[in-house]
Design a protein around this nucleic acid. Structure first.
Lengths: 186, 186
DNA sequence: TATTTTATTGACACTCTGTCTAAAAAGCAA
DNA sequence: TTGCTTTTTAGACAGAGTGTCAATAAAATA
C-alpha cells in the first residue's frame, strides 16, 4: 500500500496549488470552457511552464480532479452497500447527501467529459450490488441497469444544476415514488 | 405570418453554407470543442470575415442550429399530443422515433448548452399536456414534472450517446416497464 | 443603369498554446 | 556545510485562433 516513491515536496505543492487555483476560478464563476493555462497559473501564482511540468493540458488536470473526487465518493458509498438495511429510503438519502456536499463543484464539473462517466459507473455499481444483495433472479430484472443508471443520472444532474433548492430527502422521496407509482411515460 | 422582409439571397446562401459546414465537420468526427471559425469558414468555402457578418461567434451559430432542429421536432410532436390514443406505448415509440432520426447529430450537439434546455422544455411540455389530457387531479400527481423530465432526459441522452444500438421500441418498452414496475431505487 | 447590400482580401493587435534554454531556487544526502 | 539533483522561473519562440477594420470587388435590387 505505502509506496515509498518519495515525491519532491515542491511538486506536491505545485500540483496542489494548481488544483486549488481551478477551484478558486470556478468559485469565481469562471466557466470550464473559459479556463486557460494562463489563468490557472496566475491564480496559483506559479509560472505557466510549471503547469506543463505536471499536466499535459487543462483536460488532464480536470480529469485528475474529477478522479480524486470520485475516489472519495466511492469510498464513502461502499459501506452503505455492505450493511443490510431494511430502510432503502434512508440508504438513498444518505447516498444523495454525499452528492449534496459536492453540489457546487459538481454543478460546474458536470460539464467535463469524465464526470458523467464516473457518475454513471458509480450508479451502475451501486445498482448492481443492491440487486445482488436482494438476491433476486436476474431474469426477473426486466429493466436494464443501463436504463436505471441513465435515469438516475438525469435526475441527479438536474438536481445539482437546477434544483439545488431541494433537499436530499425530497429527491429521495421523488425517486422512490416514481419507481413505485404506476406511471405511464409522462 | 409571412413577414415580407426580403433577405438578400447571398446572406441566405452564406448562412446555409456555414451551417452545412458545421454538419460536415461534425460528420468528420470533429468534436464541438474543436470547432473553430477558421475551420467552419474553410469548409464552407467562405471568407472568415463572412462568418462574422452573420454570427457573433461559434456558440451563436450552434444555438441557431439547435433552435431550428427543435422547432422541427416540436412541430412533429404536436399532433401526437392532440390525438386521443389509448395506446400510450405506441405514442411513445412514435415520439422516440423522431429522436432516432436525429441521433447522429444529437450525439454531438448534446454537448452544446442550449441542447439540454430545449430537450427538457420539449419533455416538460409533452408530460404536462399528457397529464392534462388524462384529466387527472393535479394533486394526485405526486411526482413533479421536473423529476420525470430529468429522468427521461437522462435516458434519452444515454440512448443517443451510448445506446444507439437499441431500437426506439426497446427504449419505449424499458421506460414503460420502469415506471410500471415496483422498483425501489436501484 | 445606378444604388445598395453583401462578400472578399489583407492586415491589425490581441490571447493562448506548447516547447525550449539558461539561470535561479529548493530539496536531498553525505 | 557542501555538492549534486530536481524543480521552478524567466523569457523567448512559432503557430494558431480571435474579433475588427478599411478598401475593394461582386452581386442583388429598384
Amino acid at each position: 500500500m505505502t509506496e515509498h516513491k518519495r515525491v519532491d515536496p515542491r511538486a506536491i505543492r505545485s500540483k496542489k496549488m494548481l488544483k486549488n487555483a481551478v477551484f478558486s476560478l470556478l468559485a469565481d464563476n469562471v466557466e470550464i470552457s473559459q479556463l486557460t493555462v494562463q489563468k490557472i497559473a496566475n491564480r496559483a501564482e506559479l509560472n505557466r511552464a510549471t503547469f506543463y511540468l505536471h499536466y499535459e493540458d487543462i483536460n488532464d488536470l480536470l480529469r485528475q480532479i474529477v478522479h480524486e473526487i470520485f475516489d472519495d465518493l466511492s469510498m464513502k458509498v461502499e459501506p452503505l452497500l455492505q450493511m443490510k438495511s431494511n430502510n432503502e429510503l434512508e440508504q438513498l438519502v444518505t447516498f444523495l447527501n454525499y452528492f449534496y456536499e459536492y453540489r457546487k463543484v459538481f454543478a460546474v464539473l458536470v460539464e467535463h467529459k469524465g464526470f458523467k462517466n464516473h457518475l454513471t459507473n458509480l450508479l451502475r455499481n451501486t445498482i448492481e450490488k443492491r440487486r445482488t444483495a436482494r438476491n433476486l433472479d436476474p431474469a426477473k430484472e426486466v429493466v436494464s441497469v443501463d436504463i436505471i443508471a441513465a435515469s438516475l443520472l438525469g435526475i441527479i444532474m438536474w438536481w445539482i444544476k437546477d434544483g439545488s433548492q431541494y433537499s436530499p430527502e425530497y429527491i429521495a422521496g421523488q425517486i422512490t415514488l416514481m419507481y413505485k407509482r404506476r406511471y405511464v411515460t409522462g
